[in-house]
């Protein structure tokens, strides 16, 4: 049986997908702006963040209306709560893109980096995790979401190495402190981005299978 509610739920899911494209674009631009020292991209990210915030409010509003009117149960309920939680995660991800862009702007006034400290690799791994988390949500694919959870450690490892290498570099050459601190903050924002991608993946697993996997608890 076809239900009007399911059409509205699908439409809301599509809207969340549109929001995720914007977030993905903002994150990509942030990384590119930092690596390519591109000021124009930085300004674009600030504009996109406002649109992302607008999406968050609209999705929240429509989601709450659907909760009240549709009174969903079971998979429908889990899907709708997943949409609302992922909505909040996406908005936070937009903030992280802005944070990276702000650091990139500061770094524009500093000399170019002596080395990349594997930040491009870390950024690629992080963006890959984010895309995989969103794909698993759109395809209701719990297996793919579980892969996201397994891959999060890779980004953590990059961040740990980044921290150690930059600390050593700053100890050797104190003139690198300003650059080093900004690079660490970029690393931190990428690491938080990967964490939020795993949160999305955890929500997908609960949505699809009703299983709680957060905080390494499996029900």
């Amino acid at each position: 049986m076809k239900r009007h509610f399911h059409d509205e739920l699908k439409a809301l899911k599509q809207k969340l997908l549109s929001m995720s494209f914007l977030v993905e674009s903002a994150l990509e631009k942030a990384v590119e702006a930092f690596l390519g020292r591109n000021e124009k991209l930085i300004l674009e990210i600030f504009d996109e963040e406002e649109t992302i915030n607008q999406f968050e409010i609209e999705i929240d509003d429509q989601g709450h209306a659907l909760l009240a009117v549709g009174q969903p149960m079971a998979f429908d309920l889990r899907s709708l709560t997943a949409i609302l939680k992922i909505n909040t995660d996406l908005e936070r991800l937009g903030d992280h893109a802005v944070n990276i862009a702000e650091r990139a702007r500061t770094l524009l006034r500093e000399p170019p980096l002596p080395e990349d400290y594997d930040l491009p690799k870390m950024a690629r791994a992080t963006l890959h995790l984010f895309r995989q988390a969103i794909d698993s949500f759109m395809n209701d694919d719990a297996d793919s979401a579980r892969n996201v959870l397994l891959s999060d450690d890779e980004v953590d490892l990059y961040n740990d190495n980044l921290f150690k290498r930059i600390t050593t570099a700053m100890q050797k050459d104190p003139s690198l402190v300003k650059t080093g601190v900004n690079l660490m903050m970029i690393g931190h924002n990428l690491e938080r981005t990967a964490d939020l991608a795993t949160n999305i993946a955890e929500d997908v697993i609960y949505m699809k299978q009703g299983k709680e996997v957060r905080h390494r608890i499996e029900t």
């Binding site: 049986m1 239900r3 149960m73 429908d76 009703g210």
Partner: peptide
């Protein structure tokens, strides 16, 4: 449990109105 994470697909289909 039944209204959030039922075990059986038939239950899920009925309570989400996908049944019939």
């Amino acid at each position: 449990k039944i209204f959030t994470t039922p075990d059986k697909k038939e239950t899920e289909d009925y309570i989400t109105g996908r049944f019939g």
